[in-house]
Amino acid sequence: MNVKSILIGAASMVLATAATAQERVAVITPYLAQPGTQFYIDGFEAAAEGRGWEVNVIDTAGDIAAVISRIEDAVTQNVDAIVINVDPAQVEAGLAMAADAGIPVVGMDAGMSPYVATNVTSNGYAMAAETAAYVVNRLNGQGNVVMFVFDPFPPVQIRGVIADAIFANTPDIEVIARVTPDVQDGGIADSRAQMEALLAANPEPGSISAVWAAWDQPALGALQAVEDAGRAGEGIVIVGMDANPQARDAIAAGGNFEASMAQDFEGIGAAAAEAVARLVSGETITAPVTYVPTRLITSANVAD
């Protein structure tokens, strides 16, 4: 066999997989290998299957320039819609070409852009409001709270702003520290060290009533610090956000880590498909961002 015959053989196998269908949608991401992304795709594909679409999922293995190239190819191929899971600002060159060709683009947890008809994501404001309100209610509106925030990263910054407002609106809640942990190592270790220092500075039982963290890692670090300081029995309420597996384990264990927020990744995928369906049928979507509901995770529902 020579190169040619093998190429043709391989190519004809490939051809057999390319079916004919009505609506063709290209889903392009550099992050398919990351946990979470696959759930968006699963949700999208399930919804697309029900509609009889032909979906082409393209992963560029972290290469952002290749995302632009694949968007260009999808435009050349004249697909009916493109779904991206990458910061639109970084792939604007490709999005401009899609706009010129009149092909709608939907973002799946991507970011806002004039080139994206709508970005489907979770509402960070709402998520922060739920956990902050949970803390206020658990403390009966009274106590000292430690906050772990990260203002340099916009999606996390907005969570902190909402929690600030809710705590400030409750007269007997005092925020005794607003900590920005070093996240170089993932955020657990430094958060733990910072919490240890705060526990040492506030030795009286009850002097710290709750820890509100803008994401799970600092909450896990704070939990370790509280447990190792032998103060787990003081009833310090710890809440995180994102409900990662480690946080779910901690919540299920029934200790101080009481609550976190779960994003509905498959729901985001399904809602992105819904947005595509509306755009393809000629509707315009006025909301630049489409929010998918999130869920408070506590010991009551963590096993679901």
């Binding site: 997989t17 390319a18 398919l32 082409n56 992963d59 190819d73 191929q77």
Partner: peptide, 14 residues
């Protein structure tokens, strides 16, 4: 190859 395979909806891993 990249361009053609994308246009033919071939999986990126293939």
């Amino acid at each position: 190859l990249d361009n053609g395979l994308t246009q033919m909806n071939v999986d990126s891993y293939i």
